[in-house]
Design a protein around this nucleic acid. Structure first.
Lengths: 163, 163
DNA sequence: ACGAGTTATATAAACGGTTATATTTCTCTT
DNA sequence: AAGAGAAATATAACCGTTTATATAACTCGT
């Protein structure tokens, strides 16, 4: 009995494999954020970060920029607004558009994360993804194994220690 | 206004990015199968392929081998059984276990795919993923761009033509 | 200035996955 | 042989996403 069919099938099942790995990375990231007392689905951060970086954006622009469907964006924005992190207001010139901006709490969260959390996450992921070699498939396998062997959260603290 | 925030954020948003790319690849694959008259969610093939390769497996074994949760496996197996591709039967020795096997239709589908479709898909994906260089992130970008520029289905036919 | 078409957002339904929990069957100790 | 615990599957509830569609607001040609 094989250990991992999706891996065995190589390029044929690349799609499943990328998705699976992506979910693992997101789960790891979310855990790190939780440890900092921030309890938000990993997929929600891009919304906050996008507005922080660009200033207020409309629902459609956010969907575009983040690369999900417009209804998906509407929903996530709704949840973030509910959580008090985003603020919706009808655009001045065009009443169809809704301008989405960060609330004070949202801005604080982004500021804190930018300062205290994300650099560590970035470093941990970078650490996971460097010094790979071989075919793309082999690199993918290395990342999978690496993540299983030492989750992102350990790669952060270790970075601090060894630095 | 940026074009793609998830891309811009580099390693920080690797999770989202892998998931997104995985979905794109799966959608491409599904389209190819459809063109051959096979209309099944891309994520279902591993079940058929796993049983084809290993003989009948139990629900739990399939979940393991494919790398999803047991309830997820139960559900997908149910759908494939509904579609007449899989057959469930209680195990001989242990009445808790359910042995999952391919029906004639399921076996035919696998045989046909193995002969006529999957090699092409595999080649197309391999084509997409070779001759990459740079950091893992840069390779990812190449694949994203490559897929956008020429979908898998074109990479199959082109392979045939140029061969 | 009005109506046709377009654009922006919202809503609904479906899907594939998850976790938590229930149910059934087996195993093993005494 | 009985009863406790373990194991396999099923069910329920939820989540984030998707497509299709509805609704509301705008634009533009006549």
């Amino acid at each position: 009995m094989p250990h991992d069919i999706v891996k065995d099938f190589g390029y044929l099942t690349l799609g499943s494999r990328l998705r699976r790995l992506g979910e693992m990375v997101q789960a790891n990231t979310q855990l790190i954020m939780q440890q900092h007392g921030i309890d938000l689905p990993a997929a929600h951060y891009p919304f906050l970060a996008a507005i922080d970086r660009n200033g207020p954006l409309t629902v459609g622009e956010l969907a575009d920029v983040i690369g999900i469907s417009q209804p998906g964006a509407t929903r996530t924005i709704g949840q973030l607004a509910e959580a008090g992190l985003l603020d919706l207001s009808v655009s001045d010139g065009d009443q169809r558009r809704k301008q989405v901006s960060l609330t004070k709490a949202g801005q604080d969260l982004v500021d804190y994360s930018t300062r205290e959390v994300w650099p560590g996450v970035e470093a941990a992921v970078r650490n996971l993804c460097t010094d790979l070699d071989g075919s793309f498939l082999e690199q993918l396998a290395s990342i999978e194994d690496g993540l299983k062997h030492r989750p992102l959260i350990e790669r952060m603290t270790e970075d601090k220690e060894t630095k």
